[in-house]
Simulated scan of single mutants.
Amino acid sequence: MKKRPILILILILSVRSIIAQTTNNVEFGLKIGANYTVPKMVDLKSMEFNNQLGLDLGLFSDFMFNNRIGLKLELLYTSQNINMESYGFNDGNGGRTETAELNQEVKDEYLTLPILFKLKLINRLDFSLGPQLGLLISNNERFLVNDGIIFFQNEQLDHFSISGDLDLSFHATDRLNLSIRYFLGLNKVNSLRNNGLQFHLGYAIL
């Protein structure tokens, strides 16, 4: 389990080295930002959440194959802070008869690998889209919904996530870029499907 982040980093650096041999227009840098996650409880639709900000931190590498088309690879540590406030009991006809208070906080920590295809719209503005792979590496408490009942436990049940990303980036300078990204969860991880926004600041060092 501990070897996987190292293997992913080696993979990114290897791909960067291979592509760098075919193009001189390569950037490599650091990225920091925040995510605003909007979870959806797949197995218990009456759950209510209090959404909170989480931290994003990692590396990025951009490759331009020509003047307009390129590839963006990232390796990010992402913490998603979720506060489950309450959930309702249904009367069988779709109506809520009672609400149970939870006030349960769950902090999921992921190692994510976005692989985005980039299109330069104008001189300093890029649009990117593609898949994002995620590996759940830590959490303070895990939960699962089974037949409408929430179970809390320390064991991780699901580890992998995949989402679709849409990204808009503005290059303020040759080294500094700002981006906003929407991610749409395509699978559920321990009863949750996560959607949300990410706000990033990147700085190219190479």
Score class of each variant (00 low, 15 high):
residue 91 D to Q: 13
residue 87 Y to W: 14
residue 76 L to H: 02
residue 68 R to D: 09
residue 69 I to D: 03
residue 80 Q to F: 03
residue 64 M to L: 10
residue 58 G to E: 00
residue 74 E to V: 06
residue 67 N to L: 07
residue 66 N to P: 02
residue 80 Q to N: 11
residue 85 E to G: 12
residue 84 M to K: 03
residue 85 E to F: 09
residue 82 I to H: 07
residue 72 K to R: 15
residue 90 N to Y: 13
residue 64 M to Y: 13
residue 77 Y to R: 02
residue 56 D to H: 04
residue 80 Q to P: 05
residue 77 Y to Q: 06
residue 74 E to Q: 15
residue 92 G to N: 08
residue 65 F to C: 07
residue 82 I to D: 12
residue 65 F to N: 00
residue 75 L to S: 09
residue 60 F to C: 07
residue 86 S to L: 09
residue 92 G to Y: 13
residue 72 K to L: 14
residue 67 N to T: 08
residue 66 N to R: 01
residue 57 L to Y: 06
residue 75 L to G: 10
residue 59 L to A: 12
residue 67 N to P: 04
residue 66 N to H: 00
residue 84 M to H: 00
residue 62 D to G: 05
residue 69 I to S: 00
residue 61 S to G: 13
residue 90 N to F: 12
residue 67 N to D: 15
residue 79 S to I: 02
residue 70 G to K: 03
residue 92 G to T: 07
residue 88 G to D: 15
residue 76 L to R: 01
residue 71 L to M: 10
residue 79 S to C: 11
residue 65 F to D: 05
residue 89 F to A: 10
residue 81 N to S: 12
residue 91 D to A: 15
residue 73 L to T: 04
residue 67 N to C: 04
residue 84 M to G: 13
residue 76 L to T: 02
residue 92 G to S: 14
residue 68 R to K: 15
residue 61 S to R: 03
residue 59 L to F: 10
residue 79 S to H: 07
residue 75 L to K: 00
residue 79 S to R: 11
residue 84 M to L: 12
residue 83 N to P: 07
residue 72 K to W: 03
residue 60 F to M: 12
residue 59 L to I: 14
residue 69 I to K: 01
residue 72 K to F: 08
residue 71 L to F: 09
residue 56 D to K: 01
residue 66 N to A: 07
residue 88 G to L: 15
residue 74 E to A: 12
residue 73 L to K: 00
residue 89 F to T: 13
residue 59 L to E: 02
residue 64 M to A: 09
residue 92 G to I: 08
residue 65 F to V: 04
residue 72 K to Y: 10
residue 77 Y to M: 08
residue 68 R to T: 11
residue 86 S to W: 06
residue 67 N to V: 02
residue 70 G to D: 09
residue 70 G to V: 02
residue 62 D to V: 00
residue 88 G to H: 14
residue 58 G to R: 03
residue 55 L to Y: 06
residue 80 Q to D: 11
residue 86 S to A: 12
residue 56 D to Y: 04
residue 89 F to D: 14
residue 76 L to W: 06
residue 75 L to A: 12
residue 91 D to C: 14
residue 71 L to H: 04
residue 67 N to H: 07
